Simulated assay, not measured.
Amino acid sequence: MENLSVVLYKRREEKPKCDIVLENRPIKEPGEGEVVIRMHSVGICGSDVHYWINGRIGDFVVDDPMVIGHEASGTVEKCGKNVSHLKPGDRVAIEPGYPLVNDDFSKSGRYNLSPVYFCATPPDHGNLQRFYTHNADYCFKLPDNVTFEEGALIEPLSVGIHACRRAGIDLGQKVLICGAGPIGLVSLIIAKAMGAASVVITDLFENRLEKAKELGADFTIQIVRGESPQDTAKRIEKVLGGMPDRTIECTGAESAIQTGIYATKSGGCLLLVGMGPEKVSVPLVNAAVREVDIKGVFRYCNTWPTAISMLASGQINVKPLVTHRFPIEKSQEAFEHTRDSKGIKVMLKCDPNDQNP
């Protein structure tokens, strides 16, 4: 069987940008506790594009060729030894990161803080290929009424679940979300599902704010370039009818973090999801004297079962997030669409015999 794969190759003459190369790679035989998956749907994440354009994210550098992709679902093709909860033919969503050691973090359920294998994070290969082999314990069976694309969207959805849990979203709260990209939008969906009474979401682009309204945002605010964070915070308070109890910052932009501090209610929480510069200037004293808690997140943990239950029950709807679809052979074009912000979520279809959602 051919295993067409999407691989990033570091350019030698034009560092640090990478080339997207389609090539056939060997199918890895499943070891003990592993399964081979016939891949179906893989979403393109902003981090995938970042590796393509910049050749690195922080200390993770694409030096050797790397298969890209980590938002994924497919069908079990073959099981390795001692896999009892899955069988060939099972439709699964893939959690792309799993712990490599059973340390204190893993034992306490916070395995995202342990050393992990994580798809498409150097030196670990991703799953944008026809066939991919993964740890079976981190492959979750999909109910019949959950589509492959919904299964692939569980990865970004998990970021929203973990973020809202860390922020302590609760019934009746006012919530501010900075950034209406995919992560901001899934955070919106989950915040509403967890009982937030009113959610306002901000962004520079009107088309993203329109999508946010479609997904349940109570209010939207278009950011004005050059406006001070204090003035933006005042606009947020006016629209919400009070300062937000919780703020989820999904952009990583310094100005948005500053806005989050100024906007958040005293005694509230600002959660940092977006990854921006290593160092930013923030009004820390303002947060300290008003007891605004500032928290961070790193990916997610223990979210796939929750997401699957919410999707299967119809409690949430993520289908509107997918705006473009491409066959794996057109990965270059799909990445360009994502880079140019021509849609919300671009989905690549890996199975030549099944290009359906």
Rank of each mutant, 00 (worst) to 15 (best):
S5Y: 00
P99V: 04
V49P: 04
G184M: 09
D351L: 09
V146L: 10
P156F: 06
I37P: 05
P320N: 03
V200S: 03
V292I: 15
Q332Y: 12
N286W: 09
V35C: 10
E29F: 02
E2T: 14
C139R: 04
P26M: 03
G74V: 07
L8T: 08
S187P: 09
I261T: 03
L153S: 04
G80P: 09
P115K: 11
D218I: 04
F298I: 09
Y51G: 03
M66I: 15
P96H: 00
P143F: 07
G181S: 10
G151N: 07
V297A: 10
V297R: 04
N127E: 00
C79Q: 08
L171Q: 13
T232H: 12
N353Q: 13
G74M: 08
A93Y: 02
V101R: 13
G33H: 05
L270I: 04
L86E: 06
V67F: 00
E77K: 15
A287W: 09
D103I: 12
Q258H: 06
I37G: 01
K17V: 12
Q315D: 11
F118M: 15
A180M: 08
E77C: 05
H337A: 15
G181C: 05
G268F: 02
S341C: 10
G109P: 03
G89N: 10
T232Y: 02
V175C: 03
V42C: 15
S73P: 02
T323C: 11
E14I: 10
V224T: 15
R325H: 13
C139E: 09
S281N: 14
S228R: 11
I221Q: 10
E206A: 13
G181L: 00
V175A: 09
K174G: 08
I53Q: 14
K78N: 04
G46W: 05
S281M: 12
E2R: 15
N24E: 14
D64N: 15
M243K: 15
L284M: 14
I294R: 04
Y262H: 13
W304T: 06
V42K: 01
A136Y: 02
S114C: 09
D19A: 13
A212V: 11
E71F: 02
V285P: 01
E71G: 04
T303W: 08
T264V: 13
G55H: 08
P123Y: 06
H162C: 08
K238A: 14
L22A: 05
V83L: 08
L321K: 00
F131A: 08
Y132G: 05
A120T: 02
S341D: 13
G58R: 07
F205M: 13
Q230V: 13
V67Q: 03
A287S: 12
I94G: 06
N302G: 02
A233H: 06
H85R: 11
S106N: 11
D351F: 03
S108R: 14
A197N: 11
G314H: 01
Q258I: 05
N353S: 13
N145I: 00
K141W: 07
V175I: 14
A263L: 07
A193M: 10
Y51L: 13
